[in-house]
Design a protein around this nucleic acid. Sequence first.
DNA 1: AATCCGTGGGT
DNA 2: TACCCAAGGAT
Length: 289
Amino acid sequence: MSDLHDEVLRWYAAAARDLPWRRADATPWGVYVSEIMLQQTPVSRVEPVWHDWMHRWPTPADLAAESPGEAVRAWDRLGYPRRALRLHAAAVAITEQHNGVVPESFDQLLVLPGVGTYTAAAVSAFAFGIRVPVVDTNIRRVHARLVGGVAQAAASLTAAERDLAAELLPEDPSEAATWNVAVMELGALVCTARAPRCGACPVADRCAWQLAGAPAYDGPARRGQKWAGTDRQVRGRLLRTIREADGPVERPALDVVWHDQTQRERALSSLVEDGLVEPLPGDRFALPR
DNA sequence: AATCCGTGGGT
DNA sequence: TACCCAAGGAT
């Protein structure tokens, strides 16, 4: 084991958070659910919802037996609610095509709805200990600084980044599994996007970015996503109203959430198109059955 | 490749 | 206050 691996793995052993989906009693399904919930969503908001889901639907078959609308309701306010729909669809696929057992391989995971390259690698590595490089936004940032000597990773994942992650992965499968989560944790707790705590970093003395004097990012500015006034905001309001209602919602209850009728209709139609909302007779709307 | 897709906390 | 950001995926 190299010094680099040794330092990071030691740090992880001492500093890792005790997250429920990392515990020895976590099931592959629990890991799977956590990875979907954690997409673009902070740990602190995922934890309580994850516990609710695991208590209610401890296996893929349990969730598959429910209506997709119940998944959307239980998703609560985690955001990007299409993830709930895809998680339900994945539960159905796992139940019908894999005898209710979460598949282990990257390739089998990748074809499940809502699973991309990151999630397929993460589930394979974290739930099954398979030696596969995991590359998420934290790991990309750590690599960009530690090896690349720059403050931020490229705008989109490059082949060079994938190659680097593969090169850095320890040969031993057990070490590789821990390495993936350890580098991710380092990015989440120490090598953070905004105010990195380099004084607490186990590899600051060999960090190319530190050795270069921690130069500021000098690439093109990333334009942030707009929020106020967008269809996303309107969709959020509409779905929240429907999600929090006991039964089907009448049209007037939706009219009050947004003043612009054209945009309101467009947003509602898109929710129906996505399968997040089901139109009912009598101009009413509900979560899908 | 660029854009869309929620929500809320940190600075 | 107005941003920035958070274990991405689909199109």
